[in-house]
Design a protein around this nucleic acid. Structure first.
Length: 852
RNA sequence: GGGCGCUUAGCUCAGUUGGCUAGAGCAUCUCGUUUACACCGAGAGGGUCGGGGGUUCGAGUCCCUCAGCGCCCACCA
């Protein structure tokens, strides 16, 4: 025997993967319809989390299935430099070593992080292999590979020339902790409890004061106006006059702007264009000065006069104290409001005025919306399409500058004598360049990671250069987490339409978040994080794969249930043992031959397996992963193991057994690649130097539907026998007695075995329990003492059957049902009624026999 | 403030365009060690599909409404 008693995954998985990899089994063949899937590149510096486990499994199932169906299939892997994410990790490391980013040049930092990531990248890739991800490793792309940078630069240049890029001073989201700006989407808004302070500003031309309300008193130092609503009667007469800015003494104007809400606070608002987006907009409208009082280090600037150098929190306290001392603080009240935070360190985001690079998104978004509305991409679930469109409709310009070293440098240089004179140039390794006699200095910032990742599908397939993999663009499907809908998917669509005039993928499937087993979000602080690699080493990769896709629907945040992984583990063992049984029956000298079905079970199992193969394909083509794996699980366990293998013990057909296992392995392979390949390799009549993963999906073979139907009749007879004898104590065995019945007569051994009977005999005058659900005559020779218990059971069945008959009759007596329901349903109802009526007859006869 | 989604067996969830006795895994109970498998086999119990109303011949499925829960978006100082 080549197969051990129990399947121990850890023992086989690495070897099996090595076999695939050595054979380059996951490289595209160039034959068949191209089916390309790109991997959302995992962070090269990180470990895979449970979400990756789901994400990778889903894509791997699709690709393996399509490959077996004969497509030219490829799963293109990648690794992400994860700009900001990795930068944060590396900066922590520097801090631990007592250093900081200012100790090094940009080049030095870049080189250090490169080495840091290179050392870790292999771990992530090993973990992907452990999950059984069948990726074409020779085509792996790192997000800082030359070809990625080249295309990113091309796109930037094209946008520059198309006037889609601009550099400008704008209010950006800035994290003073990480000292970099963020795109709007990278900022988390959180409702916090704060205070609304009321501050009096003395009027200059008039007597009295005007009171404003603010949650950020320290920014008053940078106020350049007071705004009121133009229709506000309370203040109308003051518009155009001036107030004196407390603590600073600056004279500022009162302006009218319809942005102001008359009913909020005092109806008057201080305007700080340098530190608030709305104020910035008002500043633009009214041509106000911008005075920056908070610096990029999170401390007050020199503009803050006596508060200069203080951090924000201290400045706030001091400002409030100073106002109080001047008797200008007119109260405070608690308020709940939404505040932007850094998604990584939770520091409050400062809106700061900075020179940054922006993409004009409107033209890009509009084109993307056109394509989406034309239905060029199918969304699973469909509701997500609206979400993307809505997002694109309100999208504002995209800040792509990041003040970190770990990323793709922005290829732009500025004239050292004219800060508005920028040129595009890719010589980013130079600090300065001379063009036409003028010296230009390099931009220090790098690109937002999502600017390059947003180009991923056409970059990795070399679609712009008509490379080796360009036939896979647009890719077949993008499968990713619904959290990336805006951040990534929307940008891929925009950028792809812009660069290639094509949508980047035909389908998008979103999976949801994987929560813990009590449906709580996994988090380090809660301590409920489940590590996929631990699950893999405990239960096996296949078990994990089957467990994590079970009972899951698209885009829903759902619990991870370890019991499903246990079920997956048990399933793998079941399959393994089925193979062991068949191995024992066939022997190692067996030569594979096309099967000739003989028994009813043979015909039936062919029909079951072929139907399962079709249903799996139909489900997977619609991304119904749970349903597809459910078909495999039930077919293998119930139809094949419980029915067919048991039946085959009575009448063994070696070629059938070999075909049944062959087909079972094939339909299971996309879901549980390791155990199926391991079995395939262990059985010489299959492997013979081949790989299961490169085998084709099962093809139909001939069988008789009539014979298959006869097996179903036998199943219902056996089912009835089991119902009668199922819960009876002891080992007493009964004999089946039957009338003239060739089906039973031809299958007495089968019925005896599966029904655990003493035997089956033909009898003219049978007595005992008549098996009511079998349409012809069959009895069990049950003795009087057990009959009584059974007869109460019969009464229940009789009354239930009467109820069903009543229901069916009511339906058939409803004229509108007969008129409006489809013909075949009405016919079905009639047949059911006839069957139930016949059953009632048999049940009544049985009860009479027992009672006499 | 806006948008989306969820509520089905003790637990975690399926249920494809409305079709008739609502399914799975795990858990529970009974019986069973038949030489592939106790990570097993056979059988059983358990749900008025969150409440209410409507459309329809027919509703877990479509519509309205109420209640509870969750997620996402958002520049009210």
């Amino acid at each position: 025997m080549n197969l051990a008693k129990t399947y121990t995954p850890n023992q086989y998985e690495p070897m099996t993967y090595a076999l695939w990899e050595t054979a380059e089994a996951f490289a595209p063949t160039g034959e068949g319809r191209p089916y390309g899937v790109v991997m959302p590149p995992p962070n090269a510096n990180g470990d895979l989390h449970i979400g990756h486990g789901l994400d990778m499994t889903l894509k791997d199932i699709l690709v393996r299935h399509r490959r077996m169906k004969g497509d030219d299939a490829i799963f293109i892997p990648g690794a992400d430099h994860a700009g900001f994410e990795t930068w944060v990790v590396y900066e922590k490391k520097l801090t631990k070593e007592g250093k900081n980013r200012f100790d090094f040049s940009r080049e030095q930092l870049y080189a250090q992080v490169w080495d840091f990531v290179a050392a870790r990248r292999g771990d992530m890739e090993l973990q992907l292999r452990a999950l059984g991800v069948g990726a074409s490793w020779q085509h792996s792309v790192f997000t800082l590979d030359k070809k990625v940078i080249d295309i990113t630069y091309q796109t930037f240049e094209k946008m520059w020339n198309d006037d889609l890029i601009y550099r400008g001073e704008r209010l950006v989201n800035y994290c003073t902790e990480h000292q970099t700006s963020f795109a709007d989407i990278e900022v988390e808004h959180e409702t916090v409890k704060g205070k609304l302070y009321k501050i009096a500003y003395p009027l200059l031309e008039n007597v009295g004061e005007i009171i404003v309300a603010t949650t950020r008193p320290e920014t008053m130092l940078g106020d350049t106006a007071i705004a009121v609503h133009p229709d506000d009667k309370r203040y109308k007469h003051l518009v155009g006059s001036h107030v004196q800015l407390p603590l600073i003494g600056r004279e500022i104007k009162i302006i009218a702007d319809s942005y102001v809400d008359k009913d909020f606070g005092t109806g008057a608002v201080k305007v700080t264009p340098a530190h608030d987006p709305n104020d910035y907009d008002m500043g633009q409208r009214h041509d106000l000065d911008t005075i920056q009082v908070i610096g990029t280090d999170g401390h007050m600037t020199n503009e803050a006069s006596q508060f200069a150098g203080l951090d924000i929190a201290t400045a706030r306290k001091r400002v409030l104290a100073a106002l109080e001392a001047s008797e200008l603080l007119r109260g405070e009240e608690p308020i709940e409001h939404s505040v932007a935070h850094c998604y990584k360190c939770k520091t409050v985001i400062q809106p700061l005025l900075m020179d940054q690079w922006f993409i004009r998104t409107r033209p890009l978004a509009d084109k993307a919306i056109e394509r989406l509305e034309a239905g060029e991409i199918k969304f699973y679930p469909a509701s997500k399409k609206k979400e993307v469109v809505n997002y694109l409709k309100q999208l504002r310009d995209w800040n792509i500058s990041r003040q970190i070293a770990w990323g793709i440098p922005i290829p732009a240089f500025v004239n050292i004598n004219d800060s508005n004179d920028w040129i595009f140039d890719t010589r980013v390794e130079e600090n300065t360049i001379i063009v036409n006699g003028t010296t230009f200095k390099r931009e220090e910032d790098t690109f937002d990671t999502w600017f390059s990742s947003g180009q991923w599908p056409y970059v990795v397939t070399d679609a712009l250069n008509e490379g080796e993999l360009s036939r896979f663009f647009p890719t077949a499907v993008m499968e990713t987490g619904s959290d990336l809908l805006r951040q990534w998917v929307s940008r891929m669509i925009m950028l792809s339409v812009y660069r290639t005039n094509q949508v980047p993928f035909k389908d998008v499937y979103f999976h949801g978040m994987v929560n813990d087993e009590h449906n709580q979000k996994m988090s380090k602080s809660k301590g409920n994080v489940i590590n996929p690699m631990e699950m893999v080493s405990k239960y096996g990769s296949d078990a994990f794969r089957m467990g994590i896709i079970a009972n899951r629907s698209p885009a829903a945040n759902q619990a991870f249930s370890p019991s499903s992984v246990v079920a997956g583990r048990n399933f793998c063992n079941k399959l393994w043992n089925m193979a062991r049984y068949i191995e024992g029956k066939l022997g190692s000298a067996y030569k594979f031959q096309p099967p000739k079905p003989k028994t009813t079970a043979d015909h039936w199992v062919i029909s079951e397996l072929l139907s399962a193969a079709d249903r799996v394909t139909a489900h997977l083509d619609k991304y119904r992963f749970s349903e597809a794996s459910e078909v495999v699980y039930q077919t293998i366990w119930t139809s094949v193991a419980d029915w067919y293998i048991e039946a085959s013990k009575v009448d063994t057909n070696p070629d059938m057994l070999a075909w049944v296992l062959d087909t079972s392995l094939k339909i299971t392979h996309p879901f549980a690649p390791f155990v199926t390949e391991t079995i395939w390799q262990a059985l010489p009549w299959y492997s013979n130097g081949t790989l299961l993963t490169l085998e084709k999906w099962p093809k139909p073979i001939d069988y008789s539907e009539i014979s298959a139907g006869q097996f179903e009749q036998l199943q219902s007879l056996i089912g009835e026998i089991r119902i009668v004898t199922g819960n009876m104590p002891g080992n007493k065995k009964y004999t089946l007695l039957y009338g003239v019945d060739t089906l039973i007569a031809d299958n007495t051994e089968l019925i005896t075995h599966l029904g655990k009977l003493k035997g089956a005999e033909q009898s003219e005058n049978a007595s005992g329990v008549r098996l009511a659900s079998y349409s012809r005559e069959a009895w069990l020779d049950i003795d009087k003492s057990t009959l009584d218990e059974y007869s109460s059971n019969l009464e229940i069945r009789l009354s239930e059957t009467h109820k069903e008959i009543k229901r069916l009759q009511e339906r058939l007596n409803t004229p509108s049902y007969l008129d409006r329901a489809p013909e075949h349903l009405v016919e079905e109802t009639r047949q059911q009624l006839a069957e139930k009526e016949a059953l009632v007859g048999r049940l009544q006869a049985e009860i009479e026999v027992i009672n006499h």
